[in-house]
């Protein structure tokens, strides 16, 4: 029953995305941004990596900017249109609602990511690539995007309007994805082993780099899964908080 409810909420949110034109704009902006960064922010033409590293290395940054735009209306619109009252008075759990919403945002992130498959195909025809590695990197990037979606959705659940939801989740996502805790720790507290270990364990970028390096550490996969789980939990709490 839970899965059916999740699917119901996912279906509703997923369809709603396509009712607005913003999602098409976001699809275009993401694909164009990813391409610009890949081609011009690193030496792609002269040093085409077999794992398309030049493409993947910018994904956390791009995702941190795009994902808040995807999740901003997940909850804010429910408040705005007074639909939350109806939704929460239905025989389904809050967890199903939060999960469905998160999965919808994640699915859109997946569609965005797939948009770059054409690029992979073209480059793959022209130069030899390690396709297994790239496919794995796509999965890991999808996982990373999922964790940002979950965090962003959780943050936006605390906000009543779209703009506040966007700005606050943008700030959180950027801090999460761009702040390299481990390099700060290395700079300021290189001798404190605990701080070093902690900063490394929570360094989003470091964990993502660990995943796409070809040597995908189980711990890094677990990191993103745990972030998703924790963010969903916070999301449910946020709904509870709003309700009370």
């Amino acid at each position: 029953m839970f899965l059916r409810d999740v699917l119901t909420c996912w279906g509703k949110e997923f369809r709603l995305y396509f009712q607005s034109r913003i999602v098409y704009l976001l699809l275009f902006v993401y694909a164009a941004m990813a391409a610009v960064f890949t081609l011009y922010a690193s030496d792609f033409y002269n040093n085409t990596a077999v794992n398309l590293y030049q493409f993947f290395r910018f994904q956390p940054g791009i995702a941190a900017m795009i994902v808040p735009a995807l999740t901003m209306r997940l909850w804010a619109d429910e408040y705005r249109h007074n639909t939350l009252e109806v939704l929460l008075a239905q025989p389904i759990s809050y967890a199903a609602i939060a999960t469905g919403k998160f999965l919808a945002a994640w699915s859109i992130a997946g569609i965005m990511l797939v948009s770059s498959a054409g690029f992979w195909l073209i480059v793959g025809v022209m130069v030899p690539l390690d396709n297994g590695w790239i496919a794995a990197n796509y999965l890991f990037t999808f996982l990373m995007a999922g964790s940002l979606c979950a965090v962003s959705a959780a943050v936006s659940a605390f906000c009543y309007n779209v703009l506040a939801a966007f700005l606050s989740s943008l700030a959180v996502c950027i801090v999460l994805a761009a702040a390299r805790f481990s390099s700060w720790a290395e700079k300021f507290m290189p001798d404190n082993l605990l701080i070093m270990q902690l900063s490394k364990a929570f360094d989003f970028g470091q964990q993502y780099n660990d995943l796409i390096s070809g040597q995908a550490r189980f711990a890094a996969v677990a990191y993103f899964v745990l972030v998703i789980g924790a963010a969903l939990w916070v999301n449910i709490i946020a709904v509870e908080y709003k309700r009370s």
Partner: peptide, 9 residues
């Protein structure tokens, strides 16, 4: 009171 319907649907 306000209906609670989704305007985009």
């Amino acid at each position: 009171e306000a209906g609670g319907i989704y305007p985009d649907m």
